[in-house]
Amino acid sequence: MASVAVTHEGRASFRRRLPLVPLAAWAALLVLAPNVLMLVYSLWRTREGVLYRVFTFDNYIAAVTNDVTLAILGRTVAIAVGAALLATAVAYPMAWFVVRRLSKHRLLAVLLVVVPLWISYLVRVYAWKIILGDNGIINSTLIELGLRDEPLSFMLYSKFAVFLTLTYVSIPFAFVASYAALERVPASLLEASADAGASPARAFRTVVWPLSRQGAAIGFALALLLCIGDYLTPAMVGGLEGTMFGSLIVNQFGLTNNWPLGAAMSIVLLLLTGALLALVARFTRTEGTLD
């Protein structure tokens, strides 16, 4: 009896696992293999466009000891963290406003924040080029109105332009994550804390924020992911001053045609991103969940 049951179990568990095979194959072919091959590639070298399959750490040394590369890496982290922070700082209060102040048009308000995500990323970035350029809307308006004689040159092809555009594209992500968390904070908890004598500000600090900061952190993390690996924004509005690490990787594929160095840089970028996200996760653990 017992042994029959065991073989039944065994066969059943094998049949239960069978549907997982395509999933495993997908993970192996499209995730594991490319990453392993990229790692292997990063340990090879090219010279004058010819690939040499010899193991070396030269690419990593080149990626992290070069002054220019290091400066760009630092700038990338600074801009990405800054833009993600600003986007979260704008989106979180906005989400709270929508949750508390709007009822009938709440869904519309949320939808309106999300709609820009459905418009081509490329186009949204390009729009900023039109807005910020020397002949752009801001500068031509300023000159037209006689407020300035010549265009403000810091606006396009600068770190400022990259920072502004990345903040712009990050806001919807930070908003959606914050909103999802804030919407789940029951109004009854606020009433309970008001009932217990807490001022609105105090209620926010002691009840709303602890229960929703994980959402804010998720929004921040999403924005950070988006910014740190972006290529289009720095390439479109950054100029030389606004170059980011992602642009360097793309250049290794295109102009310079040094894939092994690009692969090494990719791995550096992955590790850096992972470390930043781990930091975010570490600082936003919450006790208790709503569900």
């Binding site: 993970a27 499209l30 490319p34 992911l225 594929f253 990719s266 991103t273």
Partner: peptide
Amino acid sequence: AVIIPAIVPGMVLGLSLAIT
């Protein structure tokens, strides 16, 4: 594992697939 390609920077996924 399957989710990884959706979150890594585009050029990292692009380069790793191009290599493969």
